[in-house]
Every structure is written in structure tokens, then in C-alpha cells.
């Protein structure tokens, strides 16, 4: 009860419409230049989005992994996002600016599961921005590596 009250309070204080159905906890908030923002999504909503899968290695793990999620490009298009840049923020307040062109050039996904297991908040979940690193040599660069935001909680379109 205290958690839902707190969220309701948070939504109210930020003038964010609470769109979460069935009262489940919101995991991703999108703000800034979108058609009808800000928007808030809980896990079931995100899992209903068209599913995208890619297999790649990461710089913080050994070997390749299979990631499942949704395409950032389609997701932002669905929200009517207009701008040059998004600021992705993690639960620990890690923030990175990502050019929107990245999502056009590469099939960047927001993953919610790795190797078939849901990503956990105590690991790198619940959401992890994953680049198709193995498919493009230019993505094997530290300037792209820092754009892999895990524990993603907010996207601000500018």
C-alpha cells in the first residue's frame, strides 16, 4: 500500500498520467518530445510490444548471449518521438546521451531477458539497452560501449 501510494504521489508530482494497468509497478518512463508524454510503462505492457531478438557478446561478460526485447526504433516511433538525442538514465542515476541516429543505423533493442531468463533488478535488469556489437565492427569501441545502459528506468527525448 505504501509503495502504490508513493508511486501515485510521484506521478502526481511530475504530472505524469499513471497509465499502468492493473496497478502493477511501472518500470520505464518516457519524457520529452513525444506525442502524448510523459508515458509510463510496466513490464506486461513492454512484453506485449513486438518482440526482437539479437545475439551478441558484451564487454562485461564472457561469451555471446541471446537477448530478447523490443526495438528502440519502433518503440520511439510508436510514441511519436521527435528530436536528435535521448538521455537514458539508469536506476543508479547513470545517465548517457545517445543520438537518435544510432537506432536508425543499428537494430538497438531494449532487452528484458537474456538467454531466456528475465533480467533481474539485482543483476542488469529489468531493462538493458543492447547494441548488436558482434554484427558491426564500428560498435566495438568504448564510445559505444558506454551507451549500453543497464537498469534503464527513464528515457528523455530531446
Amino acid at each position: 500500500m505504501r509503495l502504490s501510494a508513493a508511486i501515485g504521489l510521484l506521478c502526481l508530482s511530475l504530472w505524469v498520467p499513471c497509465v499502468t494497468a492493473a496497478g502493477s509497478a511501472p518500470v520505464l518512463q518516457v519524457t520529452g518530445q513525444i506525442a502524448d508524454g510523459p508515458a509510463v510503462f510496466d513490464m506486461p505492457q513492454l512484453r506485449d510490444l513486438p518482440r526482437a531478438t539479437l545475439e551478441t557478446s558484451t564487454v562485461v561478460t564472457d561469451g555471446a548471449h541471446r537477448f530478447t526485447g523490443f526495438l528502440m526504433r519502433d518503440f520511439l516511433a510508436q510514441l511519436g518521438a521527435e528530436g536528435q538525442m535521448v538521455t537514458a538514465t539508469a536506476l543508479n542515476d547513470y545517465a548517457v546521451d545517445i543520438p537518435l541516429s544510432d537506432f536508425d543505423r543499428f537494430d538497438v533493442i531494449v532487452a528484458y531477458s537474456m538467454d531466456g531468463a528475465a533480467l533481474d533488478r539485482a543483476d542488469k535488469g529489468p531493462l538493458w539497452i543492447v547494441y548488436p556489437r558482434d554484427a558491426h565492427a564500428e560498435l566495438q569501441d568504448i564510445r559505444y560501449d558506454y551507451r549500453w545502459v543497464w537498469q534503464l528506468s527513464q528515457i528523455d527525448v530531446r
Binding site: V60, T61, R121, A122, K124, W150, Q151
Partner: peptide, 16 residues
């Protein structure tokens, strides 16, 4: 607490 646990998860992965 979860965030701290995620750090340990990260440090437990191969390279780290």
C-alpha cells in the same frame, strides 16, 4: 540493496 547486488553480479562476471 538490489543495486548493490547488481554491482556484485557485475564484478562476478568473467572480465571483472
Amino acid at each position: 540493496l538490489d543495486l548493490l547486488r547488481s554491482r556484485f553480479a557485475l564484478l562476478g562476471d568473467g572480465p571483472q
